[in-house]
Amino acid sequence: MHEGDALFIVADTNSEVVLTALGALRCELAERFGFIKKGVYEILWVTDFPLLEYSEEEERFVARHHPFTRAKDEDLHLLESNPAAVNAIAYDLVINGDEMGGGSLRIYTKEMQSRMFRALGFTDEQISERFGFFVDAFNYGAPPHGGIAFGLDRLIMTLAETNSIRDVIAFPKTQSATCMMTQAPSRVDGKQLKELHILIEDDKQPKN
């Protein structure tokens, strides 16, 4: 080390906490000391996410993304014996350190979806009771599929070089959770309530 250097030590039993803290610190220092060049866009694809992660609270493995994400073919043999070592076919698009979008390829066979649910600790009876309609739908066939969802507001915020998403969001909300453009929340038409089978006195009418 040299004069003027700084050393940061972060520790936790959960490595995710450490990595999140160090990542936030790195971004904060880069912003504070002007290391981020204006008008320059560094683009990065993040891949090889863990398919599952162990939850101390639930004492079982849970889906890192969601339980419909496909595992990498080369890791499938580890799903039952070492689920923590299985990587997902998932991806995030990062620009200048901020996530702009994320997605994955999905499970498209009944056998694989059942294996995934079992890896999450569900019994066959629980799978049938909670997800039977979904798993049974695979009997009719499903093509390989996937996708990605972009945070359009965040992308525009980055391109516009503003520090607040409120400057670019299409339908801004105030701190009181009201929309100045649509005047929501507002009174609901009685006909709409009847369509929803909601019966309530006029003076206690809910707002949308």
Rank of each mutant, 00 (worst) to 15 (best):
M1Y: 13
E3P: 10
G4I: 02
G4V: 07
F8D: 09
A11M: 14
D12S: 06
T13W: 12
T13N: 13
N14I: 08
E16R: 15
E16M: 12
R26D: 03
E28I: 06
R32W: 00
F35P: 04
K37G: 01
I43R: 15
W45P: 04
D48C: 02
D48N: 13
F49E: 02
P50T: 01
P50I: 05
E56K: 13
E58S: 01
V62D: 06
R64H: 14
H66W: 06
R70I: 13
K72Q: 14
D73K: 14
E74Y: 02
E74M: 09
D75Y: 03
D75N: 13
L78C: 05
N82M: 10
N87T: 09
A88T: 04
I89H: 15
D92V: 04
V94A: 01
I95G: 03
N96F: 01
G101K: 08
L105I: 15
L105H: 11
L105M: 15
L105F: 10
I107D: 11
I107A: 07
T109I: 07
M112I: 14
Q113H: 07
M116P: 02
T123W: 09
I127G: 06
D136Y: 01
Y140K: 05
Y140F: 14
G141Y: 11
P143R: 04
P144E: 00
I148F: 11
D153Q: 05
A160S: 12
A160N: 00
E161Y: 04
T162D: 05
D167V: 09
D167G: 07
A170F: 04
A170V: 04
A170P: 04
F171P: 07
P172F: 03
Q175Y: 02
M180Y: 15
M180V: 15
M181R: 12
P185A: 10
S186F: 06
S186N: 14
R187S: 14
V188Y: 00
D189H: 13
L193A: 06
L196D: 09
I198Q: 01
I200L: 01
Q205P: 08
K207D: 13
N208T: 08
